[in-house]
Amino acid sequence: MSASVMTSGSVPGPAKDVAGSVSLGRRRHRTNTIVKALCVGATALGLVFLASILYTLLLRGFLGLSLTVFTTSTLPPGSHGGLLNAIVGSLIQTTIGTAVGTPIGLMVGTYLSEYAQGSKLGDAVRFVSDVLLSAPSILIGLFVYAIAVAPFGGFTGIAGCIALAVIVIPIVVRTTEDMLRLIPVALREAAVALGAPKWKMIVLVCYPAAKQGIVTGVLLAVARVAGETAPLLFTSLGNLNWSTSLAKPMASLPVTIYQYAGSAFEDWVQLAWVGALLITFGVLAINIVARYVLRDGK
């Protein structure tokens, strides 16, 4: 009886409604295909943005690339200046900023991973470091201006280095903590079992084991601060003359690019593109190297 009822089709339900389920299935698969296509489109769009940036930089920057760019300092418009002082200034500030920020970041990362498990202070430090990692860099510039520029009455290269160091710290903290945590307990126990004190265990066993990850973090920090503009505007200001003195305003590539790109002189805008090309490809190259280092280590 039940069979006859079922074949008569009077029992409602998706399983029996053949036409209905076919159209439902078709609709589901159509939605699926549309969403998949949109996702591929989104990814393609992201890649197009990157390609467009690189293409623009190559197109506009390559024309002005010549030896003078590296051998001459910035000069008034129309007199074939280069970017030497900006390049050197960027190198000096990035190097000192990283050199100051890295040891502090390394120590904080060590504290978080090795000493502060579950402690309230450790949680607070980790939270604050994460906030600093994403905090607007312009505010770090304002902060350093207020503590290191305004009281001493002038913009200095050293203030720029301090601002960059503040940006470096949280980046190094993040990678150091993550990498130290990956080290197997057995390795630590082996060191302790040999009678090594904790600090020797950390410095002689954990650091070498986490070396690649830590180097990656430092490289990423270098790449990040090399392109920073906003904090340097308020600290080292930029300098159109040749100067390597840390007690005076110091030029840097990003700030020079900013000043030149907005100017009305064609050769300055051209130089800004050359600078942009140099800084972007430099930064991207460091990023790729950093990834390569990390992948080799794993």
Partner: peptide, 16 residues
């Protein structure tokens, strides 16, 4: 490649 978008300095985005 997508992560590299995050590495491009802010000022380059401005010029672009």
């Amino acid at each position: 490649a997508i992560e590299l978008l995050a590495a491009v300095p802010s000022i380059i985005y401005g010029m672009w």
